[in-house]
Nucleic acid binder design. Structure first.
Lengths: 235, 235
DNA sequence: CCTCTGCCAACTGTTGACAGTTGGCAGCTC
DNA sequence: GAGCTGCCAACTGTCAACAGTTGGCAGAGG
């Protein structure tokens, strides 16, 4: 990769923006592993750009919670302890349970049909594959939040989703809960259709709980070795 | 201000970090007004630094939702339309209602005493002043979220709080709801003490609703004139 | 008087070089 | 051999200059 960060089809008109996307992908794909340090000189060279735009991209990814920046030491792919992962799932509950409640009131039939279609597609896709890292656009949870029509809520949910996704890359083996998840998704959709708020929120809460337990159970020891500091960049 | 961003007591060891804090304060204090453009050359000079660290600070504040960056045009203090403010309050509901629910289960008596003390202090402070922009550390809502002990949740709540705070600077006159708010806070605390989850969440939901109506009622027309583009920096 | 075209100043995006900090290693001391 | 001290290489933080883009203005044309 000596070419300036190409290969991207996006219309980001700026190196800094394209680099942000590329780095985010590298982090979530596991190309950059949690705890790993980003050497600015090396990385900039391999991306074919200078350190300026690279640093700007790093700043933004740090704000997003995917990187940890330590003054005078550099940027590291963020690591998560057990407790932090639990926190993320709790935050996710806050957002998605609220989304479910709102959808019980607001969702149009078309919205729910949309969700059902997505579920069918996912169902057929995973019939063969183990636990593919399917594109996030196809994710039931995000689609559900999208239907609320609240951009701020969606942005928050997306950020949490990404952090959880990163945390999951810390464990080598992936829990293959995909099929069970689909079933639970279907149940939730069912409750949504019935406009049964109590049941829908309960099912969603349980589902997220299961998802968390599955994720945490395969997580390495909470004792992180090679780590600089915790928390986000600033205090 | 030709001195390098001093006056800050924080231990931010870097121009970039200090600048982020200073800019955030300028934005929330109203020193930089919504829609206003940040001229990099001018601003950097007045802060006594070069454009590099300034741009990094800008990137982070954009990720935080306080600035809007438009390629090749610059950074603008973010503006909000009515609908966006409503979205923010809805997101705030998601976070704080969840916090209330958790506190009904988890909060220790000491925690609630802490909250009561805060409330007393606030009560005595506003007895004279109209609607002072009291420091956010004294804010009932943030303290409430803090007590949950979930850093991720707190970070999210803080970010929403800041955006709402910025949105409120768009209207010249401030709604002086302080006294009513304190009463409502006291009611919520009362419900928390009784561990009455249903009542506590209902009171909090109503309270946020009132707060939103108050904020939106004094907001200027949703037709923003002098504005570059909507949404955060990236798509 | 209005509209379109082309130029220009202002500003952002990017770069390469310079300065200060950090962590580790060699060598000295005990 | 263990521990301390001082130096050094690697790397981050910052700067100033260069390059490309944008929006507006002047002037021609209708």
């Amino acid at each position: 990769m000596t070419q300036p960060v190409s290969k991207q089809l996006t219309r980001d008109s700026t190196y800094s923006q394209r680099t942000e996307s590329v780095l985010r992908e590298m982090i979530l794909d596991g190309g950059l592993k949690p705890g790993e340090r980003l050497n600015e000189v090396t990385l900039a060279a391999s991306l074919g750009i200078s350190r300026g735009p690279l640093r700007e991209a790093i700043q933004r990814l740090a704000s997003e919670g995917l990187l940890t920046v330590v003054s005078h030491r550099g940027a590291f792919v963020r690591t998560f302890e057990r407790a932090e992962v639990a926190e993320l799932y709790e935050l996710r509950s806050a957002l998605e349970l609220h989304a479910v409640r709102l959808l019980c009131q607001r969702a149009s039939d078309d919205d729910l049909a949309d969700l059902a279609a997505l579920l069918d597609e996912t169902e057929s896709r995973i019939s063969g594959i183990a636990d593919p890292a399917y594109p996030q656009e196809l994710d039931f949870h995000l689609r559900l939040v999208m239907l609320v029509g609240n951009q701020a809520l969606l942005t928050a949910a997306l950020e949490v989703q990404r952090q959880i996704s990163l945390a999951r890359t810390m464990s080598a083996q992936r829990p293959t809960r995909a099929r069970k998840a689909v079933v639970e998704h279907a149940d939730i959709l069912d409750a949504l259709r019935a406009r049964d708020q109590e049941r829908a929120t309960r099912l969603m809460a349980d589902h997220i709980q299961h998802s968390m337990e599955s994720a945490i159970s395969v997580l390495g020891l909470p004792i992180d070795d090679e780590e600089p500091d915790k928390g986000r960049t600033k205090g």
